[in-house]
Amino acid sequence: MGKRTNTAQWVESTQRWRVSVQKDGVRKQFYSSKPGRTGQREANAKADAWLDDGIAARAGRVEDVCKAWLHNVEITTSSTNYRPLESRWRCWVLPVLGKKRINAITDQDLQTVINNAHVAGKSKKTLMLLAADMRSFCKYCRKAKLSTYTPEDLTIPAGARFKGKKVLQPTDMVKLFNTDTTTYKGAVVRDQFINAYRFQVLTGLRPGELVGLRWADIHGNTVFLARSINVDDEETHGKNENAVRSFVMSDVARRVLDDQRNLTGDEESVFCIKSEQFYYYRWRIYCRVNELQAVSPYELRHTFVSVVKTLPAGEVKPLVGHSADMDTFGVYGHALTGDAENTAQAVNSVFLRVLKQA
């Protein structure tokens, strides 16, 4: 803790209180224009705060400090992670917080950002990302000794909903696992990525993880995921720290991979997908030709979670690379045809057992 040995003095020429203090070889002056002892105490308090906490009494504005923070994010993450974050910050955070001093931010300021986005119809996931963005910025400010503020009471409005996602229904999955063909240049051919579609549904891989998968990553029945190729053709370690993982394949996934091995020969890449965009393009054609519901490749990941949602969450999270606090089933689990009937039958069975015992 720093210790001030002097007190603010009134400067007649500037009509304000001034106190000069030094810490770690750095000298700063703090001021107050308030008359009387109130102003003297205020100037002294500013100096004490700087000496004690290393926090500048007149910290910069959010719009200025965030430039350094955003640059730090840009150079430490992939462009596909940085661009959406920068867009959220520019569209939702800066209009509310841009002119605020770093050391004057409150929980209500951050809550206003979230509430505004909610009123504008943004999904629950977007609101959660905004909250995470602002917590990350505040952490950066604390590490940079610009503020001591830690958000404590941010809430997502109860009415917020996740954006509707589609998944393959059982009838679509039956077609997927029984139909190999598509059209290419007007001819009916075997789809070159048929095993990729099937493997994604069976494992819940992200599209970029599928593109980046190498035969060297597979040892026996275990798949080791250590890279992802994003839409900008950049190789990364995945979306987050949980993305680097391993899992043991199911028997049906193993059979799909064995079939792919017979097709690729000496290729290094498992599915030989040249880009995520091309994969998406061929998948859309396959869906149209075979009359499957038009879902995105990422929604094939949602399909996997929807199929296995009856398993314990603790078993599914490591498979898909989610953290312990991620609401995997809430975000990724969607209703499949027959779910309601199966639930009704399960409830019926429970009551039958209870009544039989009675």
Results as ranks from 00 to 15, higher is better:
S123A: 10
K125T: 13
K125A: 08
L127I: 10
M128L: 03
L130Y: 02
A131W: 00
A131F: 03
A132S: 15
A132L: 11
S136C: 10
K139A: 07
Y140D: 07
C141F: 00
A144W: 00
S147P: 09
T148Y: 07
Y149E: 07
T150A: 09
D153P: 15
L154V: 04
L154W: 09
I156S: 05
P157T: 03
P157M: 01
A158K: 12
A158I: 12
G159A: 12
A160T: 11
R161A: 09
K163L: 13
G164F: 04
G164N: 11
K166W: 05
K166H: 06
V167Y: 01
L168E: 05
L168H: 04
T171N: 10
K175R: 09
F177M: 09
F177W: 09
D180H: 08
T182M: 06
T182F: 04
K185G: 07
K185E: 06
A187L: 04
V189C: 09
R190F: 09
D191C: 15
D191I: 06
Q192N: 05
F193D: 14
I194E: 08
Y197F: 14
R198S: 07
Q200D: 15
V201K: 01
L202T: 05
L202G: 03
T203Q: 05
T203N: 11
G204S: 09
L205Y: 12
L205Q: 10
L205T: 08
R206F: 13
R206W: 13
P207Q: 10
L210E: 07
L210I: 12
V211F: 08
L213M: 15
L213C: 07
W215H: 07
A216H: 00
A216M: 02
I218R: 00
I218P: 11
V223L: 01
L225C: 10
R227F: 10
S228D: 14
I229G: 08
N230Y: 10
V231N: 12
V231E: 10
D233K: 13
D233T: 13
E235M: 12
H237P: 15
